[in-house]
Amino acid sequence: MADCASRLWLGLLAGLLLYSAAAHAQEPEAWLTVAEPYIDLHTGPGDGYPVFNVIERGHRLRVLDRRADWFRISDERGRVGWVPRSELIKTRLANGEPVQFASLDQQAFIGRRWELGVSGGRLKGAPVVSLYGGYAFTENLSAELTLEHSVGTVSSSKLLRLGLLMQPFPEWNYSPFFKLEGGAISVRPNATLIEPHNKDNTLASVGIGFKTWLARRFVFRFEVDELVIFSANKDQDDNEEITEWKMGFAVFF
């Protein structure tokens, strides 16, 4: 344990050194000119951080980095502060053109490529934690990979599901979706029970749900799935059907 810990710390330190070296190598050079009377400079990324300076019209600034929608900038005199996206659009490029920013609205959500989310719910009455990643081929069709862990009183199950998700009305505020998945389930009985072996089975599922864009990169999602767990014994027809519901949040890129 101690050995493992010291190795982890060493690894982290090495990563830290490499990272700080990389951070110094990158120097963004585009200068922006303030086009409105002034821009407020905050001491930190957030509306609550006090304004400690302003950059006046005609003066220049450059963007160093950002955290979410706040940009850390430096002016010609080397003063460093934070400005939100809503302030930074008051600048122009050296050639006079306004600065273009990607807006994070519902349209951005509809045109998303990647989606990563977590959710919680119930699988056959037991709590379930779910992590999923999705890739959208078009506005209507995406592929999703889901990892799930359901922990019940007598056993716990790990599920891996891969499937296609169809979203016929992406522009609706509460956009419904349908999905079809295939995958595998591994059931581990609790230690206090007699049966000590894991059981692995394949499964298929259909699901219905909706997604709704909340703000910026944030999406809420709710779904109900019907799962069929195929019997390992081909001679017996004892496929198990179970219902799952879950809701959660996702971010998109």
């Binding site: 979410a68 940009f71 273009q100």
Partner: peptide, 21 residues
């Protein structure tokens, strides 16, 4: 003489992730 300075938000170093031990 237009200085073709493209300002692309995607090129700004975004510090949105954290890894901590």
């Amino acid at each position: 003489k237009i200085e073709r300075i493209e300002f692309d938000e995607a090129t700004i170093d975004a510090r949105d992730y954290e890894v901590a031990l």
